[in-house]
Design a binder for these strands. Structure first.
Length: 254
DNA sequence: ATGTAGCTCAGCATTACATCA
DNA sequence: TATGATGTAATGCTGAGCTAC
């Protein structure tokens, strides 16, 4: 028979009414331990969260409790302590998360502002270019220019066709079975290749103007244009956009 | 050496009650 | 005063470790 069972039987023999109910009272018919008892138990708990059997018996004797009661107090105390610790850790993680989220938001706004500025500058440059062309007014030059434009357009088309042939390979390579990007191995698409094409599309195709703009905006060897970064960003762009549009996935905190 | 029954103990979920707003 | 939320001592069950047979 365990200590607890002994104690319960003892209580029941003293107070028959206890046999009807579950016994939640100590020797002195107190449900709660006294302040002194709690203080001693707390002190012991601070030095060791698990009590050796010998110390348990000794402490129980000192406090006028059953060893079983001391053991249970330690058990409950450990559970409370654990959940408190869990709560603390949770709060720390939550705080870290909130900091990162607000950092992310401000970076997103900064990026949006930069993109808008870029649009504005691009339009301005194109407008200037148009004006220059119109005010020159030389028909021959315009014809020459337009024929050169056609030529370069044809060259561009040929080049695009060639690139289209290469690109499918790339797309297969870009996302493996496990969904992990494997980078761009084709020389045409290394750093200045694939990324430059993306930028060219943005700046209005091939031509001096586009080249000029691209050089102004970002040096070719900039870390911001490295294929890994772009690839990584591209692969996550949907996720980020989704998260920021409908229902942010961190909203569940609130 | 191995299997098994019996015992103790701790962990865990839950209960029963006290206390407080 | 009644009531719901919270804190706490205790219960019941379970599995692990140990021992005797």
């Amino acid at each position: 028979m365990t200590e607890g069972e002994e104690y319960c039987l003892a209580r029941m023999s003293v107070d028959p009414f206890m046999a009807m109910k579950k016994s939640n009272y100590n020797k002195n018919n107190q449900r709660r331990f006294s302040d002194e008892q709690i203080k001693s138990l707390e002190m012991m708990f601070e030095s060791e969260t698990k009590l050796e059997p010998r110390k348990k018996v000794q402490l129980a004797r000192e406090l006028g409790l059953q060893p079983r009661q001391v053991a249970i107090w330690f058990q409950n105390k450990r559970a409370r302590w654990k959940s408190k610790q869990l709560e603390t850790e949770f709060n720390i993680l939550k705080q870290n998360y909130n900091d990162l989220a607000s950092q992310f938001e401000s970076l997103k706004k900064e990026k949006q502002a930069l993109v808008s500025e870029l649009h504005r500058l691009n339009e301005e440059v194109q407008k200037t270019h148009e004006e220059k062309r119109l005010c020159c007014g030389d028909q021959a030059a315009v014809v020459a220019l337009s024929s050169t434009d056609h030529e370069s357009e044809n060259e561009e088309n040929t080049r695009r066709e060639q690139e289209e042939e290469v690109r499918p390979e790339m797309e297969v390579c870009e996302k493996g079975d496990d969904g992990v990007l494997c980078g761009h191995h084709n020389d045409d698409y290394d750093d200045g290749g694939y990324n430059n094409d993306i930028k060219r599309e943005y700046f209005g195709g091939f031509g001096e103007e586009a080249d000029h703009l691209m050089n102004i905006v970002e040096p070719a060897d900039s870390c911001l244009t490295s294929s890994d970064d772009w690839g990584g960003f591209k692969s996550n762009a949907n996720l980020l956009d989704q998260s920021s549009s409908n229902c942010p996935w961190w909203d569940f905190w609130s």
